[in-house]
Deep mutational scan, measured.
Amino acid sequence: KKVIATKVLGTVKWFNVRNGYGFINRNDTKEDVFVHQTAIKKNNPRKYLRSVGDGETVEFDVVEGEKGAEAANVTGPGGVPVQGSKYAADR
C-alpha cells in the first residue's frame, strides 16, 4: 500500500472492539482515517484483542487503502504500546 504520511498523531473518534475497526481523527488535517485492528502494531500487552480506546491519542502512518486513507503501524505517541479500549478483555 502506498504511504501518504508517516508519524501522524491523531485522536481515536471511536473503535468497535467486536467488529475490529474504527476511525482516528488526524491532528494535522482533521481528516478521519479508517483504522482496522490488524493495523495496530503495539497492542496493550495486558489486553487479549488488539484495539484502541475512544479518545486515545495514537501515532500512525497513513496509507492508501481500497476506500481511501487508512491507518497503518498504529502505536501510542513515540512508539509506545496503545492503551486499548476499555471494552477489550484483559488477559
Rank of each mutant, 00 (worst) to 15 (best):
I40W: 04
V33I: 14
K47I: 05
P45C: 09
Q83L: 11
A69G: 10
F34P: 02
D32F: 02
K86V: 11
G22V: 00
K13G: 04
A88N: 08
G10S: 00
G65F: 04
T29M: 03
I24H: 00
G76A: 08
N25K: 14
N73G: 09
V33F: 03
V35D: 01
D54H: 12
D90T: 10
V17D: 04
Y21G: 02
K7Q: 14
D32C: 05
G10R: 00
P77N: 04
T6A: 07
G84R: 05
K2Y: 09
E59F: 07
V58G: 00
V8C: 12
L9P: 09
K42L: 14
L9W: 09
F23R: 02
K67L: 10
A72V: 14
K42R: 11
A71R: 00
K67E: 08
N43I: 10
E70P: 00
G20M: 04
V58L: 10
T11P: 01
E59G: 02
T38I: 06
V52R: 02
R18I: 15
G78C: 11
I24D: 01
K7V: 04
V8N: 02
I4T: 08
V8R: 06
Y87G: 07
F34G: 01
A88Q: 07
G10F: 00
F60H: 01
N27I: 10
V8G: 01
T6G: 14
Q83F: 10
Y21V: 03
H36I: 02
D32Q: 05
G53S: 12
Q83P: 04
G53V: 08
A39V: 07
K47M: 08
V3P: 06
F34E: 02
I4Y: 08
V33H: 01
R46G: 14
G53C: 15
I40E: 01
T6Q: 13
V74I: 09
A89V: 15
A71V: 07
S51L: 06
W14G: 02
D28S: 02
V52T: 03
V80G: 13
D54Y: 12
V3L: 10
V12R: 00
A72H: 15
S85G: 07
V82A: 07
Y87I: 08
V12I: 07
E66N: 13
F15P: 01
T11F: 08
Y21M: 04
Q37A: 11
K67H: 09
N43E: 09
R46Q: 15
G79N: 12
Y21E: 03
T57S: 13
T57R: 11
V12A: 03
K86E: 08
V58N: 00
F15Q: 01
T38R: 12
A88L: 07
R50I: 11
D61I: 04
A5C: 15
A39N: 08
K30F: 15
G53L: 09
N73Y: 08
K67T: 07
Y21W: 12
A71W: 00
A69H: 13
K67M: 09
G22N: 01
V8Y: 01
L49Q: 06
K2R: 07
R46V: 13
A39R: 08
K47A: 08
Q37G: 10
S85P: 05
F23V: 03
N19P: 03
T6W: 12
V52L: 12
S85V: 07
F23T: 02
E31S: 11
K67Y: 08
V80P: 04
D54E: 15
A71G: 04
I4V: 10
T57D: 15
L9C: 15
G10V: 00
I40R: 01
Y48L: 12
R18W: 06
V52C: 10
V80Y: 12
G84S: 06
K2N: 12
T57W: 13
G22L: 00
F15M: 02
A72W: 13
G68F: 04
N73S: 11
L49E: 04
N16K: 03
I4E: 06
A89S: 13
S85N: 13
T6Y: 15
T75N: 04
V8S: 03
L49P: 06
A5E: 15
K7H: 14
K30P: 03
H36Y: 08
N43V: 09
K13T: 07
V62R: 00
G10A: 01
K1A: 05
K67V: 09
P81W: 12
I4N: 08
V63T: 08
N73T: 04
I4W: 06
A72T: 14
L9S: 10
K1W: 03
G76F: 11
A89R: 13
A5D: 15
G10W: 00
Y87E: 07
R50W: 07
T38D: 05
I40N: 01
K13Q: 07
V58T: 03
F23D: 01
G65N: 09
V35T: 04
R50K: 11
Y87T: 08
A89Y: 15
R18A: 13
V33L: 13
E56H: 03
W14T: 03
E64M: 11
Y87R: 11
V52K: 02
G68H: 09
N25P: 00
I24Y: 00
K2M: 06
R26L: 06
K47R: 09
V58F: 01
K30D: 13
D54T: 15
E56M: 06
K41D: 05
R18N: 13
D90R: 08
R46A: 12
R26K: 03
L49N: 06
F60E: 01
K67D: 06
N44Q: 09
G79H: 08
A89N: 15
I24V: 11
E64I: 10
N25R: 13
N16H: 13
G53H: 09
K1L: 04
E59P: 00
F34D: 01
K1Q: 04
P45L: 13
N19F: 15
K30G: 14
I40T: 01
V12F: 04
A89C: 13
N43K: 14
V58I: 09
K42H: 10
T29K: 05
H36T: 04
G78A: 15
V62G: 00
V80C: 15
A69R: 14
V74L: 08
D32M: 04
N43L: 09
R18K: 14
E59R: 07
N25W: 09
K2H: 06
W14A: 02
Q37H: 08
A88F: 06
G20H: 15
T57A: 12
V3E: 08
K42W: 09
R26S: 03
G68L: 06
G76Y: 08
V3Q: 06
T11W: 04
F60M: 12
N25A: 12
V62Y: 03
E66C: 13
N19L: 15
K13D: 05
E64C: 12
